[in-house]
């Protein structure tokens, strides 16, 4: 048993798994940021964030379909506008969910907003399932295929079978770049802008923030909008990467991103990024070494271990970064 396990380790394509894990992890990180920001500011888990990710997927495809029927298939423009549409729609959902499901429960018992969040997540999921139908959808190949070309081949493999081949595709580069840019922009916003100061002030002392003139409700709504936008972009990237969209995608990826946020230290922004990357890489190595059926066992075992051994996560609530 052990021997065969060690033997299977030897053949693990670690370089490629590191690449695919990082790419996937960067998308988890974008979703995890939404969880962690909302937690930071409200001490509440917005479980509906995973569904916003899913709505982002469908909104992009819907936007692209609408535009291409409106004026034809201009690949780059339609894709960008599709993402913009997804961000706007997801922001509206994020804002709306805050207004409807959470604002009035802000001072209620901690279980109330949590239950409300779970309820909202079911509502959004079933809503999409009813509206678009619950069979899987395909991301239009016309828009994702142009990104499929190989940017760099790291290890030349057998061209007939692909054995031993390792490389990075344009789409992977784009996903990593987009994620990096968005995270940099987020760090800048939180640390170098007034609204960032206001967000951190609200997270530390809501009443005092209001007393110095910060419109707390607006800042909280803004936090939801930022988190939702990141999740929506992650949704677009994820659906391009896996080529499919399902109404249930938000639960799976959302839970993993939530785990990432906990592992990094919920409320902690760099922690969410670190957690996302770790989850992505661990997941891919688990699939390769133990098999895909073990991925959730391992991920959620890690979640439990983190909660027991290091309840504040890897980076703790390192404070200056809390939003």
């Amino acid at each position: 048993m052990l021997e065969s396990f060690i033997k299977s380790l030897a053949g693990v394509p670690w370089l490629e798994l590191l690449i695919t894990g990082t790419v996937k992890g960067s998308m988890y990180a974008l979703i995890a940021l939404g969880y962690t920001m909302v937690y930071g500011i409200l001490q509440m888990i917005n479980f509906a964030n995973g569904e916003i990710f899913m709505i982002g997927m469908f909104a992009t495809v819907f936007g692209i379909a609408l535009l291409s029927s409106l004026w034809g298939s201009f690949a780059a423009i339609n894709l960008i506008l599709g993402v913009v549409f997804a961000v706007i729609l997801a922001s509206a959902y994020g804002y709306g969910s805050e207004r409807i499901a959470y604002r009035r429960l802000r001072n209620a018992h901690i279980l109330a907003p949590l239950t409300s969040a779970i309820g909202l997540s079911i509502v959004l999921q079933q809503f999409i399932s009813n509206v678009v139908g619950n069979q899987p959808f395909t991301f239009p190949n016309y828009y994702s295929d142009p990104f499929a070309w190989r940017v760099v081949t790291l290890v030349q493999g057998n061209p007939a079978t692909g054995a031993g081949d390792v490389g990075i595709s344009m789409l992977q580069v784009c996903i990593l770049t987009t994620a990096c840019l968005l995270m940099t922009a987020l760090f800048y916003m939180i640390h170098c802008t007034r609204v960032g100061i206001a967000m951190r002030a609200v997270s530390q002392d809501r009443l005092m923030a209001s007393l110095v003139g910060i419109p707390v409700n607006h800042v909280i709504a803004f936090t939801f909008i930022v988190g939702s936008s990141l999740a929506a972009v992650a949704g677009t990237l994820f659906s391009m990467y896996t080529t499919t969209l399902t109404w249930s995608a938000g639960t799976a990826s959302g839970l993993k991103a939530f785990t990432a946020a906990i592992i990094g230290g919920i409320g902690n922004i760099p922690g969410a990024v670190l957690g996302g990357l770790l989850i992505g890489i661990i997941e891919d190595f688990t699939i390769a070494i133990l098999g895909a059926q073990w991925r959730n066992v391992i991920l959620f075992a890690i979640l439990m271990l983190t909660l027991i051994l290091r309840p504040r996560g890897l980076l703790g609530e390192r404070v200056a970064d809390k939003v």
């Binding site: 007034r194 100061i197 206001a198 951190r200 002030a201 530390q204 002392d205 009443l207 005092m208 923030a209 007393l211 110095v212 003139g213 910060i214 419109p215 404070v319 200056a320 809390k322």
Partner: peptide, 23 residues
């Protein structure tokens, strides 16, 4: 208010700037 309620994890400068949000 009583008890000062400084934002403990904002820098002094950020604490001050938080007062002029919207101005």
């Amino acid at each position: 208010p009583e008890g000062r309620h400084i934002f403990p994890r904002l820098t002094v400068k950020e604490n001050l700037l938080s007062g002029s949000y919207l101005l």
